[in-house]
Structures are given as structure tokens and as C-alpha cells.
Design a protein around this nucleic acid. Structure first.
Length: 555
RNA sequence: UGUCCCAUAGUAUAAUGGUAGUACGACAGAUUUUGGUUCUGUUUGUCUAGGUUCGAAUCCUGGUGGGACAACCA
């Protein structure tokens, strides 16, 4: 904890401000989501940043919904966003909405009209676009640009009163149609939308644009450090222009690079397509990068916070490897998750010299990393199931598991030796016959033998069943955003593999949704909310590191 | 043929004019009743050309490369 960490560029700015005595030593940030979709891990980076900065400097963070577009927004999203932020472990100082300020923002608009800095434009969207110019050519003034103040005031009032149809008129700032910055070419401040708003209902039929609401909302809340992502850099001059002309509290905007993770997509638009076109089962499908999906998959708030902390804050574009996220969840779950034995692809194993019908109750430690986790009872008998790939008929030299004549230890139990096996007509192994060494029992081994491999197992008569959902990366390629053509053509068709009837040891059968386990030698798993009293469902959060899989791949 | 932002190992991130370091990954080894964990070691980097300076990843200039900006979206 006392680890020496250098400051990121935002912390440096804040510390300079604090040293100067700016804002009376106050630090106030905000997290400003639009309630039109679910939060994803990119938002988590922003949440950890905004709330983390305030915590570090004894400040506060507002949660402010940027709800200026009634046609795309909904309270469903408001609720999920709040739940996700709380789950991540943060508390906001105030729950606010840009729509709380509609009256005040309207008055700001009137003030600008009176100063001759805003005008009502009757042009169509197409006409405005045509005069806008391009990044390399200046725009041209609208024919309505020089309307008188009185006329503008009256027209704007009529817009507000619902006297015009959607799209008939807009209110624009009078800045500079020749500016090299497109955002300064008389940006639209207000548009007409006869639409029901999730909070203000039908009170308004004109709504401010993001550019005329966001900065002013920050200013109204006296936000000291308004932190957003890089794509808003060119908006900053406009943000500052409005604050200057309105003579209101000067919030300052600072921009950082958004998070990109490999093997996934992060834009709300693309995630929405995956949901709506059925490529995943919903916003919280554990293959999605949304917060709700990561939660369902079994990631912990701490692992996500640590990840966000360690990826750093910078202004350069980045594509972070998921293996880093996986490292942090493994690191936590290795310390905290109880071990259990589960066989997902079973093959029968009979111990021929173990008495038929005899059952031994073995002691198994729950977590070798945490003695306080205690032990549990594990039933052992002469008929077991082991993992199909723990046996090879013709094993290569480095294979430490079971094969004809080979010995392995059954975890927590005995050393066994493979004597023979049966195959069906297709050549699949159906039963493996072994003999055990009675003196090799775990905890009291006097056999003097050491074996290279230890495998997991379940007792056939005692095993229960569960559905196990194995997840892999959603995309086949590193960076689906930078591939030719439709990003959806790079979806990994094997990203979900459902094992309907995995065999689980009895102790796992009573697990409850949200419980996390390590399946010995397999990975970390979390009980899914689809679980019913009749059916246990588990999601694989992440595999264990598997050096054998790597070795096997080498051939 | 505009404006703005950015450039350090495979990835990410430090070094704030003075020894280029850390994490993840990869590779090799030790330990191990999880081919897990843990431990040890190895590998790989300042985009480029000039300039300033005793000294440049850092400051300046030019180039190169990447990104953003032309929704009545945010």
C-alpha cells in the first residue's frame, strides 16, 4: 500500500492547482453517463478515475446523467448505471441530471441571444450541413445569421412554446463559420423534439445539445476538474467560449485516452448490435465487456478497480491485453476461492482392487492458500469419473497423467496404476481399469513412491450434476475494430461452450448464485443467477494458467 | 491538403535535463499431492534527422507514423 507511485498527468494538474490555491483547494469531479446503454469496462476506467481522484484529494464526485436526448434515453439505463457504480464500490455525492438544469440552460440561451451571440436558424439539417464546409475548407454564413436580437428572442420563445415542428428551426451560437475547428462553426445549441422525456415528461419540446448542456452543467455544479475522453478535445474551445460569454463558473475540461481491450469491442453502438442481433444473450452475457457481464462472469469489483488503477491514465491511444485483467482476477481468486473437484468431460475409472460398495470419507483442504478456509469431506469409492483428457492411450514422454502402465495420484486419495482399458467400436475409451496402492493414502503415505501427476476425480455414486458454461474470447482477432469489413464477421463461433451435465463433488451442490470456486486444475467459476433448486449453473470466469496446454500445442 | 492530440520492450506504464525501470506476456529453471500457486533467471525499448546543453527519452525545429474533428448523438 505504501508503494511509491508516480503521479499521472491529471494528478499533477490537480496538485499544481492545489499548490496555487485554485478553487479554494476544492476538488470536485463528476461521472456523466448518458442513460442510453449499459456501462462497460471503459466506463469503469472513467469511474475509477473520477471517483478515485476525488477520494485521493478529499473531494467529491457527482453522478450526473447527461439526459439531453429524450428519444434514446430511459430509466432502465439509469437504474443499471447506478447499480454498476455501487457494485464497483463508489458512492456519489449527488445524483443529478442535466435535465435538472433545463430551465437554467434555457436562460443561458436567452442571455446569449441578447448579447447577439446566438440566432435562430430556419435552415434544414441538409442546408446547415452544406454550409458547414469541411475540415479543410471554411464554412459559409447562414442566411439567417444576422437576424435581430428581438426577432431571435421571439422565435426562440415560440420554439419553446411548441409552435414549430421538429426540425423546423434550431438555435445556433454565433461563433465563426471559418474556424478551423468544426465545432466552432456556429454549433447548434437547441433543437426541437416533441418527445417525452424520462424525467421532465412533456414539459419541454426543445432540448439543448450536448455541447450546450455539458459544460454548463459542470459549471452549475462548480466542477473543478471536468474529465472526459480524447474525442472531446476539439469541443474544449467551445466549452470555454460558452463559459466566457456566459460569465459563469470556469470549470476546466481535461481529456484522457479511453480504454480499449483486445479481443472485444467497446463502443455502445457495437455492443448494442451484438445484443439486438442475438450474437450474445443480453447486455449481461458473460462474454460482453459490460460491467454487468463481468459481474455475472465472476469478476470482483476489486479486480476491476486494480486493473483500472494499473493500466494508468494517459493521452495516447492504447489497446490493453485482456491477459492483464485475467491476471488480477486470478490473483484475487487464488487467495479467496475454495477448491472443488468437477469433471466436465468424464470417463469411467474402476479401481479393481478396491472393495465394491466401500466408501471412504476423505478430508480435503478448501484452500491451500488459506488455512482458515478449513476442510471438507470427500466420498471415495471403487468407481470414479476422471477427465477424459487426463488419459492417453499412447502418451508422449512429457505427459504426466494416466496411460497404460502409468501411475498418478488421485488428489486427496491414493496413487493408482492403470492396468487396462475398454474401447468402443469408434475407438473411444469407455472404461479405465486401475489398481490402487492402499498405503499411499493422502496424509499417511508410506508407499515411498512419488508420481509426477495428480488428477482430480469424482465418485460415480456420489457425484451431482451441474451445467457449466465455458467462455472464450468473443472475437477471433486481436482488434476487431481495425479489421476489414463488418466487425461481426470476426466473432468467435466457439466463444460459448455449454457442458450440460458436468459431474460435481457433493460439497458443491448447495452453492448459491454469486459463489465463486476454483475447479481444481480447471479454472475459476461463479454460480450463475440462472441457477434453480433443480439445476446448478456455473460460469467459467477464467481458466487456470495451463502450461501443459501450451506444451501440447507445440506438438 | 486545415486544425488539434499523440509517439519509451509484444502490451501497458515510469524516469519531470543526470545509471532507461516496473507490471503483464513470452522463454528457461527450482519447488509443488492442482502441469495451479510461489521463487529464480533470461529476452526485448526511447519513431527519425538536426539543434540547444558538460549531459536529452525529457527542451527546440523539421520529417515520419498513428488518432480525433464535417450527427438537429453523447
Amino acid at each position: 500500500m505504501s508503494e511509491e507511485r508516480s503521479l499521472n498527468f491529471l494528478e499533477q494538474i490537480i496538485e499544481e492547482d492545489l499548490a496555487k490555491g485554485a478553487n479554494g483547494g476544492r476538488v470536485h469531479t463528476r461521472f456523466p453517463p448518458e442513460p442510453n446503454g449499459y456501462l462497460h469496462i471503459g466506463h469503469a476506467k472513467s469511474i475509477c478515475l473520477n471517483f478515485g481522484l476525488a477520494q485521493k484529494y478529499n473531494g467529491q464526485t457527482n453522478l450526473r446523467f447527461d439526459d439531453t436526448n429524450p428519444v434514446t434515453e430511459d430509466t432502465e439505463y439509469v437504474d443499471s448505471i447506478k447499480a454498476d457504480i455501487k457494485w464497483l464500490g463508489f458512492e456519489w455525492a449527488n445524483e443529478l441530471y442535466a435535465s435538472d438544469y433545463f430551465e437554467q440552460i434555457y436562460n443561458f440561451a436567452v442571455a446569449l441571444i441578447k448579447k447577439g451571440l446566438a440566432y435562430v436558424d430556419d435552415s434544414t439539417a441538409e442546408e446547415i450541413a452544406a454550409l458547414k464546409g469541411t475540415p479543410t475548407e471554411p464554412g459559409k454564413d447562414s442566411p439567417y445569421r444576422n437576424r435581430g436580437v428581438e426577432e431571435n428572442l421571439q422565435l426562440f420563445e415560440k420554439m419553446k412554446n411548441g409552435e414549430f415542428k421538429d426540425g423546423a428551426k434550431v438555435l445556433r451560437a454565433k461563433v465563426d463559420m471559418a474556424s478551423p475547428n468544426m465545432h466552432m462553426r456556429d454549433p447548434i445549441m437547441y433543437r426541437i423534439k416533441h418527445a417525452h422525456h424520462h424525467r421532465t415528461g412533456d414539459k419541454w419540446c426543445i432540448y439543448p445539445m450536448y455541447d450546450f448542456a455539458h459544460g454548463q452543467s459542470d459549471s452549475i455544479e462548480h466542477i473543478t476538474h471536468s474529465i472526459c475522453t480524447l474525442e472531446f478535445v476539439p469541443h474544449r474551445p467551445l466549452y470555454d467560449w460558452f463559459i466566457e460569454k456566459l460569465e459563469i463558473f470556469p470549470s476546466h475540461q481535461y481529456e484522457f485516452a479511453r480504454l480499449n481491450l483486445n479481443y472485444t469491442v467497446m463502443s455502445k453502438r457495437k455492443l448494442k448490435q451484438l445484443v439486438e442481433e442475438g450474437f450474445v444473450r443480453g447486455w449481461d452475457d458473460p462474454r460482453m465487456p459490460t460491467i454487468s457481464a463481468l459481474r455475472r462472469r465472476g469478476f470482483t469489483p476489486a479486480s476491476i478497480r486494480t486493473f483500472c488503477d494499473r493500466i494508468g491514465i494517459q493521452k495516447r491511444d492504447n489497446l490493453i491485453e485482456v491477459s492483464l485483467l485475467e491476471y488480477f482476477i486470478r490473483e484475487e481468486l487464488n487467495r479467496t476461492a475454495n477448491r472443488v473437484m468437477v469433471v466436465t468431460d468424464p470417463v469411467k475409472l474402476v479401481i479393481t482392487n478396491y472393495p465394491e460398495g466401500q466408501v471412504e470419507e476423505l478430508q480435503a483442504e478448501n484452500n491451500p492458500e488459506d488455512e482458515s478456509a478449513g476442510t471438507r469431506i470427500l466420498p471415495f469409492s471403487n468407481t470414479l469419473y476422471i477427465e477424459r483428457d487426463d488419459f492417453m492411450e499412447n502418451p508422449p514422454k512429457k505427459f504426466f497423467r494416466l496411460g497404460p502402465g502409468n501411475m498418478v495420484r488421485l488428489k486427496y486419495a491414493y496413487i493408482i496404476k492403470c492396468d487396462s482399458f475398454d474401447k468402443d467400436a469408434d475407438g473411444n475409451i469407455t472404461t479405465i481399469y486401475c489398481s490402487y496402492l492402499p498405503e499411499s493414502r493422502s496424509g499417511g503415505d508410506s508407499s515411498g513412491l512419488t508420481v509426477k501427476g495428480t488428477i482430480h476425480w469424482v465418485s460415480a455414486a456420489h457425484a451431482a450434476k451441474a451445467e457449466v458454461r465455458l467462455y472464450d474470447r468473443l472475437f477471433k482477432v486481436d482488434d476487431p475494430n481495425n479489421e476489414e469489413g463488418d466487425f461481426k464477421s470476426y466473432i468467435n463461433p466457439d466463444s460459448l461452450q455449454v457442458v450440460e451435465n458436468a459431474l460435481i463433488e457433493p460439497a458443491l451442490a448447495s452453492a448459491k448464485p454469486g459463489d465463486r470456486f476454483q475447479f481444481l486444475r480447471k479454472g475459476y467459476f461463479c454460480v450463475d443467477p440462472d441457477t434453480t433448486p433443480e439445476k446448478l449453473v456455473l460460469n467459467r470466469t477464467v481458466t487456470l494458467k495451463d502450461t501443459w496446454a501450451k506444451e501440447a500445442k507445440k506438438g
